[in-house]
């Protein structure tokens, strides 16, 4: 078997061209997923009537569906009903000119939200109850407790798991070719379609994924090591 190192390098460069797309598909779902996931976690933590059981089911359902299916179903729903919906709301947007990346971001966010809500829920549960008592006893309102005590304590506890989620999302983003989005994997494969040197292309992309995930890991580890003043927990 011959291995064309020069072509691997070409495929590498071709893939690199689409790095912004892959990053977008990793970070935006993490952001949207965190916002909604934190909301769901709070609703379930405080056991808000009606909403809490509702989201329990939502999380249970989306946790159990493979990302590929969420992606494909989202694509079908968008392609089927977006034009109708946009027309009825007299929005100028049409499916044919919609950037397919938004569908991918939507689907990956949906996948991320259930996982992230569970991450935040377990972090909330691990805040010592005394922290809430102390905050209330000095006269904080519910919102002040959230802003001054819960959020600053939940984030450092959640960080290692958020890091995992980001890595999962970046890897899951390799599935977006299903909805005709070109990411780093697709970018390399387009190059390989010309000369059928798929092995070189796959290895080139694997190297990029590895470098990407290793850097995210390193940044998180650096933050945990040097920015840990918030993270230290009192052992009662």
């Amino acid at each position: 078997m011959d291995f064309d190192v020069a072509f691997m390098f070409q495929a590498f460069l071709a893939a690199l061209h689409y790095l912004p797309t892959t990053l977008l598909l990793g970070f935006l779902p993490l952001l949207f997923g965190s916002i909604f996931g934190f909301g769901i976690a709070l609703i379930r933590f405080y056991q808000v009537p009606i909403l809490s059981p509702l989201f329990k089911w939502f999380v249970a359902i989306f946790k159990a569906i493979p990302v590929v299916l969420i992606l494909l179903v989202s694509y079908l729903i968008f392609s089927d009903s977006l034009d109708q919906l946009a027309a009825s709301l007299s929005l100028p947007i049409r499916f044919s000119d919609l950037d397919r990346r938004w569908i991918a971001i939507f689907a990956l966010s949906l996948y991320a939200v259930s996982g992230l809500s569970e991450i935040f829920r377990s972090s909330l549960a691990s805040i010592p109850k005394g922290q809430f008592d102390a905050a209330l006893s000095v006269g904080f309102t519910g919102r002040q407790v959230l802003r001054r005590v819960i959020i600053p304590q939940v984030f450092p506890i959640s960080l290692p798991l958020l890091n995992n989620m980001l890595i999962s999302l970046i890897k899951a983003s390799s599935l977006v070719s299903m909805v005709s989005v070109v990411d780093i994997l697709n970018g390399a494969l387009i190059k390989a379609n010309v000369n059928y040197r798929y092995l070189e292309a796959y290895i080139a992309v694997a190297l990029i994924y590895w470098a990407l995930c290793a850097s995210i890991e390193a940044i998180t580890a650096g933050y945990e090591k040097y920015g840990h003043k918030n993270k230290r927990r009192r052992l009662a």
């Binding site: 010592p128 102390a134 006893s137 000095v138 001054r148 304590q153 450092p156 009192r234």
Partner: peptide, 25 residues
């Protein structure tokens, strides 16, 4: 209130713990 387990805000310094109620509440 003064608590059995102290329950200082774990992400704040001693000084910030004392100031927190005054400034925020």
């Amino acid at each position: 209130m003064v608590f059995q387990q102290y329950d200082l805000f774990i992400h704040k310094t001693a000084l910030e713990n004392v100031m927190e109620g005054l400034v925020i509440a």
